[in-house]
Each structure stands twice: as C-alpha cells, then as structure tokens.
C-alpha cells in the first residue's frame, strides 16, 4: 500500500498539476490557432507576464496592509486576469493586426510572435532581473496530508493547497468554457469563425469582435496558468518559456483548433512526463523476493534528466502518425 501511495504522490499528483497548466496554456494556443490561424509562440511569455502581474499586485496589496490567511494571489487573480487580457489585446493591436491587415502568411505571424516573445522576456528581465520570486513569503504554503486508516500504511497522501486550487480552477474553467462555446452568442460566433472564417463573415459575424474575444480569453487563461504555475513552483522570468514547447505539443496532440483536444492533450503530455520518469521498480518492491537478481533497481522509462524530451518525442510521433491529433483538428 505504501508503494501505491508513493506512486500517487510522485506520479499522479505531479502529472495532474502540470497537466492542468499545459491544458490551460494549450486551450489559449488552440483558440488563437482556430481563429487567427497562426501558432502563437509568445503564449508562454504571456503566461510569465500574467504571473508577474499577479506578483506585483500581491506585493502592492501586502504593501497597503492587506493580510490574509491564504496566499493573497487568489484574491487579486481576477484583476491580474483582466490586466493580462488587456495586454494581450494591446499586443495584438500593435504587432499582429498590422501584419494581418497586409494579409501575410501565417508563418510571418509566427516569426512576429517570436519577436514579441523576446520583447516580453527582455522587459521582464530588465525590471525583475533573472532571480526567482516566491508568493509564499508572507503566508506559508499549506500542505495537506491524508492518512489512510489502513493497517501497515505509514505514508500519507500529500499535496499542497495551490495544487488543489489549480486542479479545481482548471475544471471550473473547462466547464465555463464549454458553456461559453456552446450556449453563448459569442462562443457560437467563435466556433463559426474557427470552422470557416469567410462563411462566418458573410453571415454577419463581426470578425473583429471575435478576434478581440479570442485574445481576451487566451490572455486571461495565460495569466491564470502563469500565476498557478508560479504558486506551485516559483516565479522566474523564464518560467513559461521552458514549458511553451510541451504546451504546443499538447495543442497539436489534441488536434489544433480543438478546445477539448487541447485539454486532453495537456493532461496526456503531463501524465506522460511524470509517468515516464517514475521509477516503476518501486511498485515491484512488495514482490522483491520473487524477482530475479538481474532486474535493475531503477526501472524509469527515461532517466529524469530527459524528462523534457518526452513531450517532444510524443509531438514528433503525433506529427508523423496522426498529424491531425486525437480530436481531428486542423489538417495538414
């Protein structure tokens, strides 16, 4: 039983947590791809920016004497989301809209988004340096431990409070997004544009409005994911730049342009990463007397230092075997 709990703590919980982050990021990427038809490379830095906006607001609130028993970041999250959404709109207005108006190829927009990536990174590092920041300077991170009332079980199931909040928030966002896309006027308009932009426009859908809403949702989700990630680990300028490729992998594996696919892809990549570096020999420990001697003590599928490559390998395999992704997204 202890081994099963070890598995839960070291493979399932991390997979769920990082999967949630990937899912939130991948939804934004896939929405932008569906509406604007380009791979938005600056999404990772939008997430980092969201994290830093939250951090600044949290410091500001602490500065004027607000103190809470929970991390103050939860309180300011709506404001931070609004600010990041506005920033995303501004970035689109300044850098992507002029190029779109000229009718450039999607790939030029991709290169432009790399430029935006570098500008955001440069600015963040200019103001915050290269150090790490922590949301938990005022209030300690709460760690929940659940002890199972079973004989012989010594290990508790443990996870932190931000992790619980993160998974719950992701579920809530997914449900909200589902109702927005299927029930609301704007959501239906977005799906129509994603299916066929020309047809949607001749049916009287305001394309500019749809683009704006896309950026608001994508920016808001990016801020949410960035802040959540910063709460789970620490806040640093290259926070999301390092996970933008797994997020792209999640969006592509799920099927580009497919919101549910992005969520599935996010969790798939997250679990693939945590399960492939998990030492499976631990699960065999109860049977160690029956096992042959030649079995190595470390049965991880890939060594821990290659964790990052798991997402890329899955990405490359998906691109080769089923380029439309699980949910049949935009075809090649």
């Amino acid at each position: 039983m202890n081994e099963a709990i070890f598995f839960l703590n070291n493979a399932v919980v991390p997979g769920l947590v990082i999967g949630s982050i990937y899912a939130l990021g991948a939804v934004g990427i896939t929405l932008i791809y569906g509406i604007l038809r380009f791979a938005h490379f600056a999404h990772g830095d939008l997430m980092t920016m969201g994290g830093f906006v939250s951090y600044l607001l949290a410091i500001g609130l602490a500065g004027i004497g607000v103190s809470t028993t929970f991390p103050v970041a939860y309180l300011i999250l709506p404001v931070a989301i609004a600010i990041t959404a506005v920033a995303a709109l501004a970035i689109d207005r300044m850098f992507y809209a002029p190029l779109r108006a000229r009718g450039v190829k999607p790939v030029t927009l991709l290169v432009a988004s790399i430029g935006v990536t570098m500008m955001i990174q440069g600015l963040i590092r200019l103001f915050f340096g290269t150090g790490t920041y922590n949301f938990f300077e005022a209030t300690p991170k709460v760690i929940h431990q659940i002890r199972l009332p079973i004989e012989g079980v010594t290990r508790p199931i443990s996870f932190t409070q931000p992790q619980v909040v993160m998974v719950l928030v992701t579920v809530a966002v997914v449900i909200a997004l589902h109702f927005f896309l299927t029930r609301s006027r704007f959501g239906k308009a977005m799906r129509a544009v994603s299916d066929n932009a020309d047809l949607a426009q001749v049916s009287g859908i305001n394309l500019r409005m749809v683009v704006r809403i896309t950026w608001i949702i994508a920016g808001g989700l990016a801020c949410l994911a960035g802040t959540m990630l910063a709460l789970d680990v620490t806040l640093k300028p290259d926070l999301a730049f390092n996970i933008i490729l797994p997020i792209f992998a999640a969006a592509i594996v799920g099927g580009v342009g497919q919101v549910y696919g992005a969520i599935a892809g996010g969790y798939l990549i997250g679990f693939a990463e945590s399960l492939s570096v998990f030492n499976w020999a631990v699960l065999l420990r109860p049977f160690r007397d029956q096992l042959p001697d030649w079995l190595p003590t470390n049965l991880a599928i890939v060594p821990t230092e290659y964790k990052l490559t798991v997402a890329f390998v899955i990405l490359v395999i998906t691109l080769l075997v089923r380029p439309t992704g699980i949910f049949r997204g935009a075809s090649l």
Binding site: F95, P98, L99, V104, T108, V111, A112, I114, G115, V116, T117, M118, M119, I120, Q121, G122, L123, R125, L126, G129, T130
Partner: peptide, 24 residues
Amino acid sequence: ASRALQMRVFVLGLVIVLALRYAP
C-alpha cells in the same frame, strides 16, 4: 550590468517586429 545584458533580447525582438512590418 546584468540588466543591460537583458536589453539586447528586447532590442532583438523589436528588430524582428519592425523588420517584418516595414521591410519584410
């Protein structure tokens, strides 16, 4: 010193965006 080093990342990003817009 360490901040000035980061400026070049920003400058490079600006150069990309400007080049794409004004001298594609």
